[in-house]
């Protein structure tokens, strides 16, 4: 379990990193927290020729709130997100989600940029980006691209990034003051990748949803912003309405089969999550009584 031989470069600046990436393209890999890259290399699942270590680029680390937007540098570690007062104040959903990422040792090293660029469909952060309406900032030698989270994730471990680009930051609009949120994932053990997970953000007024964003993960090859949320907005939510939304949700999903769950089980658990999410956000225990549709 030793990686194949590779060349290593510690980037001295973002410009230097981009230069290396533009020269080496797909033969190079960016090393951020290394929590996915290094195990894959040690298992020889991948054998990059060059590792571009961006770990020393302090300019990529940190959280800034300005004009209703939170900008999080790509090198910001999961542990930083968990401890950040800005995140706790403005994006408690993100804080909740990060607590579900793996274990402390991994959260101490793993970074938000690394997780998003890795684009594991069962990981928490990509779905949160959809729910929170994030913009991903990618930089190449030619300049910056701003990519909506909804356009960023392209498949299992696939994103809109080109091999020559570096994910440098994400921008997240601060949700309105009256927002509420729900985060839950089903895992066999705490810290595992989710079987199905949901990061939801809502605006609730008089017991009704004014707005509802449902960011599901592990339900297809990339995170999903469920359209069926629309069935629950601006209506009095009854068991029948919820049941209809559940059916619509099941249609939207394209779950993968793996050792933890069949597609049928993932559809079922996604519906359970929706039911529990709605019951929690509307404070309506009665909606859970009969179980999911």
């Amino acid at each position: 379990m030793k990686a194949s031989a590779f060349a290593y470069a510690r980037a001295t600046s973002v410009a230097n990193a981009l230069e290396l990436l533009s020269v080496h393209g797909e033969r190079a890999k960016v090393l951020s927290g290394g929590q996915s890259l290094l195990p894959a290399m040690n298992l020889r699942l991948i054998a990059p020729e060059l590792i571009v270590d961006i770990g020393q680029l302090a300019e990529l680390r940190g959280i800034v709130v300005k004009g209703g937007v939170l900008t999080i540098g790509a090198l910001t570690r999961h542990a930083d997100l968990l401890k950040s007062p800005e995140i706790a104040t403005h994006l408690p959903l993100l804080k909740d989600a990060v607590a579900h990422i793996a274990h402390p040792a991994i959260r101490n090293r793993g970074t938000i940029g690394g997780s998003l660029a890795q684009a594991d469909p069962a990981s928490e952060l990509p779905a949160c980006m959809l729910t929170l309406g994030a913009t991903i900032i990618a930089r190449g030698v030619g300049g910056e691209r701003r990519i909506a989270a909804s356009e960023f994730f392209a498949g299992i471990y696939e994103t809109a990034l080109t091999p020559q680009e570096l994910l440098v930051a994400v921008e997240l609009p601060v949700p309105p003051k009256n927002s509420t949120y729900f985060f839950h994932e089903f895992t066999r053990r705490h810290g595992d990748y989710a079987i199905v997970g949901l990061a939801a953000l809502a605006a609730v007024e008089d017991g009704r949803f004014d707005d509802l964003c449902l960011g599901y993960f592990a339900v297809r090859d990339r995170p999903l912003l469920a359209k069926s949320a629309g069935k629950l907005v601006d209506v009095a939510v009854t068991s029948a309405v919820l049941s209809e939304a559940c059916s619509a949700l099941a249609e939207e999903l394209d779950p993968l089969e793996d050792q933890q769950a069949t597609p049928a089980m993932r559809r079922h658990l996604a519906k359970v999550l929706l039911t529990r999410c709605v019951a929690s956000l509307l404070a309506r225990r009665d909606l859970c009584a009969g179980g999911p549709a």
Partner: peptide
């Protein structure tokens, strides 16, 4: 006793 086994036994999936 995985969730898959129990849900199957319960006829939920």
């Amino acid at each position: 006793l995985t969730p898959q086994v129990i849900l199957t036994a319960l006829g939920r999936i």
